[in-house]
Simulated assay, not measured.
Amino acid sequence: MTATTIPLTTVEGSVVDRVLAVLLDDLWGGLLDGLAGAAGVDLLSLPFMQRAYLAAVCVAIVGPLVGSFLVHREMAMIGDTLAHAAFAGVAAGLFVNAVFAVAVPPLATALVVAALAALVVQTLVDYAGAYRDTSLAIVLTGSFAVGSVLITAADGGIAVGINAYLFGSLATVSRANAGILLAMTTLVGLAVGAAYRPLVYVTFDEVGARAAGIDVTRYNRLLAVLTAVVVVGAMQIMGVILVAAMLVIPVAAAAPVTGFRRSIAASVAAGLLATVAGVTLSYWYDVAAGGTIVLTAIAVYVAVIAAARLRGRLVSSRRERVARANADATDADAGTGAGTGTPDGGDGAE
């Protein structure tokens, strides 16, 4: 009687499938199915929309979480740079698949290339003496050039496959991609939580952080790599062209909030509103998900800024009214005090 050998890859695959089934179907899918039944919204029960909403929630969390550090360091455009690097990575993956018939996941190559590009940007800033905007421009244009060369080198055969990554699509969020994005979100959240204090110190006072003995270079590289992870994760639904928006716009919408922790929470809330509403509108009107999410995020930003200015004007007007009332009361008291003497202007003494 011979023993049956089960390949390790099969066992690992079955374990991953069971974990994804529990997380995506039982927990997340069950939650949205319950909401669909309670609210009478059928789209919440559609499996591909459930994956799209999960991706939207993940992007809304990690985008502002990392973007808050980037915006305060005046490196908001690094997201756009790494998005173009991810484009080159996707093109490389599709090129290898088309030319060499090797099954390479485009998201995996995008993550590798984007992470390497992030380290190159940080190296240029730290050691090459290049200004930040110059280093970003070099990596951005170079990455886009590599991607365009790979597309044309394959006789245009991969141009159709890359469109979904350029503009984003609800249909591209597969079960496996949703699981990868969920893992990325967990990884980014844990990394930011573990390195939160030094990251804040380096963000607001890099010179002081160096003087305090903090390895600034290491945390700069950590932030750059986390940005690459966020860009690749958001690329599934936002597309390469618009992926940088979720690193910047929700953070800008949270600008009126004081306190860094509170501003991060507010930016995540703004991101959740923009992504969930954007995905819903994209489904209803059959338009691009990435563009709809960005436009919704801009609308949230405009509404928040307008509300903050209106509140500021109301507060200023209230203060002016109080000051005017106090001045009138002071004048009235002065007039009363002046009228307490005798009619001939004396003080009443004989």
Rank of each mutant, 00 (worst) to 15 (best):
I264M: 12
A245G: 09
I298V: 15
P256S: 06
V240G: 05
A255F: 10
R262G: 13
A228R: 06
V257D: 00
T296E: 05
A299M: 12
V287A: 14
P256D: 01
A255H: 04
P250I: 03
M238E: 05
I237V: 11
V251H: 02
S282L: 08
G259E: 11
T292E: 14
P250N: 06
V229N: 04
I293D: 03
L272H: 04
L242V: 06
I264G: 03
A252S: 11
V243F: 04
M246G: 04
T280G: 08
R261A: 13
A234P: 00
A289I: 00
G290N: 06
W284H: 10
L295K: 08
L247R: 08
G271Q: 09
I241C: 01
M246L: 15
T275V: 14
A254T: 06
G291P: 14
V231G: 07
V257K: 02
T280F: 11
A299L: 13
G278E: 08
T258L: 08
L247W: 00
S263P: 00
A299P: 11
V279P: 04
L247P: 15
G278K: 05
V287F: 14
A245C: 07
S263I: 07
A244K: 01
V294G: 02
G259S: 04
L247K: 03
G291M: 08
P256N: 08
G259P: 13
S263F: 01
L281D: 11
G290H: 12
A274N: 11
Y283S: 15
A244M: 10
A288M: 09
G271S: 09
A245E: 05
A274T: 09
G239Q: 05
V276A: 10
L273H: 05
V294K: 02
